[in-house]
Write a protein that binds this DNA or RNA. Structure first.
Lengths: 120, 120
DNA sequence: AGCGCGCGTTCACGGACCGTTCACAGCGGT
DNA sequence: ACCGCTGTGAACGGTCCGTGAACGCGCGCT
C-alpha cells in the first residue's frame, strides 16, 4: 500500500508532473533538480487548484511559522523556481503574481511568444 | 468538506466568477489581474444584487471611513475597473452610472455594438 | 584541517505597479 | 450660459516585487 502510494500522489498540470511525496518533479518527462524550498513552493502552488495563495500562507506552509515583515525569501525563491521552470518549458508561464494578494499557479502560454500578426 | 468551502464563496454573474475571499476574479475562466481597490469595488458592486450602491457607501465598504467631499478616487477606480472588464468581455457592460445616486452592477449586453446611425 | 559546493538568507538597486490628486472635457439640468 | 456631476488622461510619491550579488553554513571530499 505504501508502495502504491506514489502512483496516486501525483499532480499533473500541463507538461508538469509533480510527486509531492518524493521530491520529484518532471517537465516533459525530464526530471527537474529543485531544492527543498523550491519544491515546497511548487507543491503548495500547484496543489492549490488555480486559486491565489497569499504570501503569508505560502510562508507558513513551506517555511513554517509566521512571515516576518521585510522577509524577502519568498520573492527570491519564486524567482529561482520560475527560472528553472522557464528553462525547462520556455513557452509556458506557471506562476502569476497578483500584486497585493499573492501568487497563483496556472499553466498558460507565455505571452513572450507573441505571434506576429498573421492578419490579412 | 473543508476543501469544498471555497466552492460556495463565489459570486457568479454572466461570464464573471468572483471569489471574494481570494482576491480572484475570472472572466470566461481567464483570471483577471485586479488591484486591491479594483477588486474591492467589484466585490461590493457585484454582491449588491443589482441595486444601486451610493458613492458614500461604496467608499465606506471599500476604502473604509467616510468619503470626503471632492474625493475622486471612486470615479478613477470605477473607470479602471470598467476598462479591465471591458477588455476581458467587450460585449458586456457591468457597471452602470446613476447620476446623483451611485453605481449599479448588472451584466447587460453593451450598446456599443449597434453603432451606425449614420449608415442609411 | 582545508577546500569546494549547494543551499538558504539577506541586502541593495531598480522597475513595475498602486492609489491619490489634479486638470480638463462632456453632459444634463436649471 | 452656468453649475454640479461624472469620465478620463496624466503626474506624483509610495509601496511592492524582480533580480543579481554577497554572506554564512553545513557537508562531503581529499
Amino acid at each position: 500500500m505504501e508502495a502504491a502510494e506514489h502512483l496516486r500522489d501525483v499532480i499533473r498540470t500541463g507538461a508538469l508532473e509533480i510527486h509531492p511525496g518524493q521530491g520529484l518533479a518532471r517537465a516533459d518527462g525530464r526530471a527537474l533538480t529543485l531544492s527543498v524550498r523550491e519544491f515546497g513552493l511548487l507543491v503548495v502552488l500547484a496543489g492549490s487548484g488555480g486559486t491565489i495563495v497569499r504570501r503569508e500562507e505560502l510562508y507558513r506552509r513551506v517555511w513554517g511559522g509566521a512571515l516576518r515583515p521585510g522577509d524577502r525569501s519568498i520573492d527570491v525563491y519564486i524567482h529561482k523556481l520560475r527560472t528553472k521552470l522557464e528553462e525547462a518549458l520556455p513557452e509556458w508561464a506557471f506562476i502569476h503574481t497578483h500584486v497585493g494578494f499573492g501568487y497563483r499557479f496556472s499553466p498558460e502560454r507565455s505571452r513572450a511568444f507573441h505571434i506576429p500578426s498573421t492578419d490579412r
